[in-house]
Design a binder for these strands. Structure first.
Lengths: 107, 107
DNA sequence: TGACATTATGTCGCATATGACATAACCTTC
DNA sequence: GAAGGTTATGTCATATGCGACATAATGTCA
């Protein structure tokens, strides 16, 4: 394939690259899971240090005990949005959130 | 209400606290929006410095141009999950994400 | 051990985010 | 100001996340 044609396709959003991008996708997926798990751990620690039960925290978040359990378990069916919202509700500052991210060992 | 009764209710997840918790909720909501906007800004910068069009990035993310536009615009109907996944796909490291968080001036 | 509190797991019906598509709006460059 | 490329906005059908509830599993303490 000649260069101008390639460029044409590229601009219109077609994947002309190599297979490396696919690998990057799964790599990125792994990183995201790492992030979620780290946030989940932090959530649990924060709740416990406040001596709250999952049911109490749930009430605070206007959520349910089961969802809190799933959050802390790092359940894949829990969004980052909910995790962050919960952490913020527990008083986590953006600086503290930053530390969680920077403490991650990512590939 | 006596103390033991209060404790009983509290443990089972009822809100016995003051109105401060409600305020905390909206405060936390504002913080979350700040975070999203910061990530959105970073996404746009990253895409541009790679000289990608929205359509190209969309292809990379297996998404669509319109969604990329919405992400960069900080559209509320875009999840943190998608934003972070996109940033990671653009090569953002967890350290770099951490810097975004720590650079936020939150109340 | 038994009674009770807490947490984990599974499943609903409903709400919201998603990619896709159409098309409008905005830039450049001629 | 026309043409072509890029970005913004609106709308769908479908996928995924949500709170709620039931209940199982685990923990705690008399």
């Amino acid at each position: 394939m000649n260069k101008t044609k390639k460029e044409k396709l590229r601009k219109s959003g077609w994947r002309v690259g190599t297979a490396a991008d696919f690998l990057a996708l799964s790599e990125q997926e792994a990183a995201l899971i790492e992030i979620k798990l780290a946030l989940a751990r932090d959530l649990k620690i924060r709740r416990q240090s406040r001596k709250l039960t999952q049911a109490e925290l749930a009430r605070l978040l206007r959520s349910s005990q089961s969802r809190v359990a799933k959050m802390e378990a790092g359940d894949p069916a829990v969004s980052l949005d909910l995790l962050l919202r919960s952490l913020l509700s527990l008083g986590a500052s953006t600086k503290q959130l930053a530390r969680i991210f920077s403490s991650l060992r990512t590939a």
